[in-house]
């Protein structure tokens, strides 16, 4: 498998605080990778540099073998990255239909029928089709998260970056989400930041652990789960220990 995404010495500091430090990271095409780590480990900062929301202090990002470090956000998205925010970010005053249509139209242009099809498909996959005419602000928080994932699906990305997608979802919704992730895994490469260990253990093929901005461990779910350093980093976080 060739690397779809690679970072070399990627770093970012905030006025002296090393949020991400010298991260070398390789993600092969087609893999589902989980990125975990305690609060403040630098996960969001790291993926923000991947999509270009944040400029690195140093280091490079390669996407599909191409150096994209200097490219603006929209250009990287055009190359095939998609990103869902940790703090839900949708178009609250627009309908669900229009939210997803905006995601699909960038790829499909003015082809109304194709856009319509893509919108229906994406909304039904997250189970929100019946709400298509409602405005996003009328949805529960959990449903807004699902809407954001539908927008990701409608973009048909090569790399889908999900920043804590299950945050705020009810248990039943999480079960559905795991199933959805399983399906998506067959279509695209996924980088998943997740605190819910049952999701990570069931879905991820490989896990990268970030701690204080550096890669602490990397390996299969079993390896990472057994790693004493990881357990130490998570001390007091019952999810991993249990």
């Amino acid at each position: 498998m060739s690397a779809l995404l690679e970072t070399r010495g990627l770093s970012r500091s905030f006025s002296g605080l090393r949020a991400v430090h010298e991260v070398d990271f390789t993600l092969p095409e087609g893999q589902v990778r989980a990125l975990i780590g305690p609060n403040g480990a630098g996960k969001t900062t790291f993926v923000s540099m991947l999509v270009g929301r944040l400029a690195p202090s140093s280091g490079t990002v390669l996407f599909d073998g191409r150096d994209v470090t200097g490219l603006p956000v929209h250009a990287r998205v055009r190359l095939g990255m998609a990103y869902t925010f940790q703090i839900t970010s949708v178009f609250l005053r627009l309908s669900l239909h229009e939210n997803v249509a905006l995601a699909a139209r960038r790829r499909l242009g003015g082809d109304g029928l194709a856009v319509e099809r893509a919108v229906r498909e994406a909304l039904s996959r997250v189970g929100l089709l019946e709400h298509a005419r409602r405005n996003a602000e009328e949805l529960s928080y959990g449903h807004q998260r699902l809407l954001e994932i539908a927008m990701g699906i409608a973009q048909k990305p090569r790399l889908l970056i999900l920043d804590e997608p299950t945050q705020g979802l009810a248990d039943g919704e999480i079960a559905d989400f795991k199933a959805l992730l399983g399906e998506l895994a067959r279509e695209t490469t996924i980088l998943l930041i997740e605190h819910n260990m049952s999701v990570v253990m069931e879905v991820a093929e490989k896990i990268t652990v970030l701690n204080f901005g550096e890669v602490l461990a990397e390996g299969s779910p079993e390896e990472v789960h057994a790693d004493p350093r990881v357990q130490a980093a998570y001390l007091g976080v019952p999810d991993v220990a249990g």
């Binding site: 998205v77 998609a82 949708v90 178009f91 627009l94 995601a103 139209r105 973009q155």
Partner: peptide, 19 residues
């Protein structure tokens, strides 16, 4: 429609790939 999207949430519009 993109103009409206920018009005509603500029960063989201950018992350959908719009210039």
């Amino acid at each position: 429609r993109v103009l409206v999207a920018i009005r509603e949430n500029e960063e989201r519009a950018r992350l959908l790939g719009y210039d």
